[in-house]
Design a protein around this nucleic acid. Sequence first.
DNA 1: CTAGGGTTAG
Length: 690
Amino acid sequence: MKVWEIRELLRICSKNSILKGGIRLHGVLVKMGLKSDVVTNNDLIDMYGKCGKTEVANQVFERMPEKNVVSWTVLISGYLYGGNPRKALKVFDRMCSSDVRPNEFTLSTVLKACCFVGVVENGVQIHGLCTKSGYESYPVVSNTLLHMYSRSGLIKEARKILDVMPVKSLISWNAMIGGYVTAGREREALFLFREMQKVLNVVADEFTYASILKACSCVGAFREGLQVHASVMTSGYVSSSGNEILTGALIDLYVKTRNLAEAKKVFDGCSLRNEIMWTTLIIGYSQEGLVMESMDLFSRLWRSGISIDGFVLSTVIGVFADFSMIEQGKQLHSYTHKVPSGDDVSVGNSIIDMYIKCGLTDEAEQKFREMPRRNVVSWTVMINGHGKHGNGHSAINLFEEMQKPKEDKSGGLQPDEVTNLAILSACSHSGLVEECWKYFTAMQHDNQTKLTVEHYACMVDLLGRAGKLKEARSFISNMPITPNAGTWQTLLSACRIHGDVDLGREVGDILLNIDGDNPVNYVMLSNIHAEGGGFEECARLRKMMKRKRLKKQGGCSWIEVEKRAEVFYGGDKWHPLTEKIHEVLKEVERRMKEENGYSCEVRFAMHDVDGESKEDVLRMHSEKLAVGLGLLVCGREGEVIRVYKNLRICGDCHEFMKGVSVVVKRVLVIRDANRFHRFENGNCSCGDYW
DNA sequence: CTAGGGTTAG
């Protein structure tokens, strides 16, 4: 073999990480006695580096009597690709004090290493070096600089580089567009994409499309997404052979823009499916409330033999959590013990959340305590869980515990926005007024902490619960950020609870102005009027809704029976046991009237159903139907009946459940859109305040 | 020796 042939083969081994072949070629070279050839040694260093054998690469390097730029550069890139960017920078430091000067390739490699070990700490300094040495304007260097800044969120710096580039290649555009997307500035990414399309000689490639599809999906740009989809198809990057990443991005686009049919079409048309595509589509089904379809997809994935990784597991457990399918969830929980990905933090977190959402706080606590690793999300799930169950003090204990520095794996964690929201909401729901203000003021004074509209809404809720409606109103006026619809909805719901029709009218006007297409606002406002006797205003609102073709979201409730979710909509009659359910409910109601004088609270009815008496409408509420089924099939003494409702439980049903718990001597747990209600001996854990 | 892409839990 000639030396050039060996070098050729070495490069192939390097590119494809074929260590065995590389070692054999090394052996051949040694036998030929060519130790001193710089170029060949450089190839050896590169090969060992790319095959993950950085120590051997370093040995070859050290034994070289003379080193050139390439020797240093391949050693540095070896450390970088071997996952040791710090070491790569150290070698670069050594190089700087040697007599060999870095070139554009060295600088590009070192800049890339900076992406992993801190751009501000190291990258900026190397950038200065590029400027001084005159390499800054080299395409390799400027593109890497652009990439480094854009991916670390230093968008301004990145943009500066792009704007002064004399020649912008596709790589430059892609780096900037991708940077905007990772920074969550999707609109700017889309804008830049349009700019790029105006430039001649630059044509989008698969990388551009991947970023742009993600941008469309994040902002829900459905129309633009369709256009990009068409371009992707004509570009030929997604053909019968398929591009997994683009196909995955397309499915995600249609899932996020809530076009399940199209998502399914892309999925079905793809011959090579990976677990990401499955995961994405499962999310699509579950977010549309299609439990069975979502589960069906999961069992198809299971049978397909594709590996079930942590992403899939946490997603599917999340589906069980959303639908509170505890039996299914437990089954998957025990499965996680058998697979390595079961130890993923996100999988553990999804399990805790599942138990929380199913109302099993003890099981959640146990899983939380035995997890090998925890992160902020783990703590937040627990804090939220306690909050929703009205255990404000437990939430506070956890919140304090997580921040305490500790020797072992847990604790010493900084709460983030979501955690802060959880603790405020927990305090508010439990009526811990002082504590809530204490935390809120602390957050206001800490300039590390970001407060969003939702944090402020928690305080509005706190004031509203206490009946301090005027204070809540002026609190909103004095907020440093613009209140959104949710903020006003919080106040409006407080107005309803306290029967303040006047303030309700004022808030309602504001709401209809800024969020006039949301049926929830009309329903809430019309209920306030109805309860205050203002039936004309109520009728006026109903007409407005009709004219705008707005329909109130259907309330639905479900209960898990034999591992299936039995779903009821208000007034449903499809269930085979409908008659028996009604019989049971009537019987219970009769006994309630006799024993504790319960009477139907008609003030909570939505006054929009013709032809049926208000009392009938109430009896048909979906949560009652689900509880009725529970009474029929969950016969065991002492068994807790667990029901879930997509909206908030209404006042009448709330009273009804209290009565049921007395008459049948059972515990009922109802999770609604807002929190948990545990009915026991005629009381509710929410203290009748929700 | 040179740069870039899609999925998860609160």
